[in-house]
Amino acid sequence: MKQKITDTTAIYKGIFDMVRCIPKGRVTSYGAIAKAMGLKSGARMVGRAMGFVRGEKPPVPVQRVVNSSGHLSGDDGTRQKKLEAEGVQVKNGRVVAFNQLFWNPLDEIEF
């Protein structure tokens, strides 16, 4: 049985570590990260964590985490530019070919 983590700092560190595993040119969703981590508060907690990545070493590629329909939530254009630099097409704020580019941590990472 997995040990339940209740310390927010430890949870955020785990989220950051998982996001760092997303390959360039791929994307995942807040919910997929939450599910892989077993977080009951789910996607919202992952979204909150993404707001605290500034200054993290190594950097956290927050641009690779989008909502469940492939939309860039709260993007000021920076995330789209970073994704496009990695070869990911974004049209009208949504990742083109989202299903083909989707990276599922449950399939990609051994737990």
Rank of each mutant, 00 (worst) to 15 (best):
M1S: 02
K2P: 10
K2A: 07
Q3C: 00
K4V: 11
K4F: 08
I5Y: 05
T6G: 02
T9Q: 09
A10P: 05
I11H: 05
Y12C: 02
I15V: 14
I15N: 01
F16Y: 05
M18I: 09
V19T: 02
R20W: 09
C21S: 06
I22T: 01
K24M: 11
R26H: 11
V27F: 11
S29Q: 05
S29C: 10
A32D: 11
A32R: 12
I33A: 02
A34L: 11
K35L: 14
M37G: 09
G38C: 12
L39A: 02
K40R: 13
S41H: 13
S41E: 14
G42F: 10
A43Y: 13
R44W: 12
V46S: 02
V46M: 09
V46Q: 03
V46P: 02
G47E: 07
R48D: 14
R48Q: 14
A49H: 03
A49T: 07
R54F: 03
G55H: 10
K57G: 00
P58L: 09
P58N: 09
P59Q: 11
P59Y: 08
P59R: 10
P61I: 06
P61A: 08
P61C: 12
R64Y: 00
R64P: 00
R64E: 05
V65Q: 01
V65Y: 02
V66R: 03
V66P: 06
V66A: 07
S68M: 14
S68E: 09
S68Y: 14
S69R: 14
S69T: 14
G70E: 05
L72C: 05
S73C: 13
G74A: 11
D75R: 03
D75W: 04
D75F: 05
D76W: 10
G77D: 08
G77F: 02
R79F: 15
R79V: 04
K81N: 12
K82V: 12
K82A: 15
K82M: 15
K82F: 07
K82R: 10
L83I: 08
L83S: 06
A85M: 09
A85E: 01
E86S: 07
G87M: 08
Q89P: 03
Q89H: 00
Q89E: 12
Q89R: 08
Q89G: 01
Q89W: 00
V90E: 00
V90M: 07
K91Q: 11
K91G: 04
K91W: 00
N92V: 10
N92W: 01
G93R: 03
R94L: 06
R94S: 08
V95S: 05
V95T: 03
V95C: 06
V95W: 03
V96R: 02
V96C: 10
V96D: 01
A97T: 08
A97H: 13
F98K: 02
F98I: 09
N99I: 03
N99A: 15
Q100Y: 06
Q100F: 10
F102K: 12
W103S: 07
W103E: 08
P105L: 09
L106T: 13
D107M: 14
E108L: 05
E108W: 03
E108N: 14
I109T: 09
E110A: 15
F111P: 07
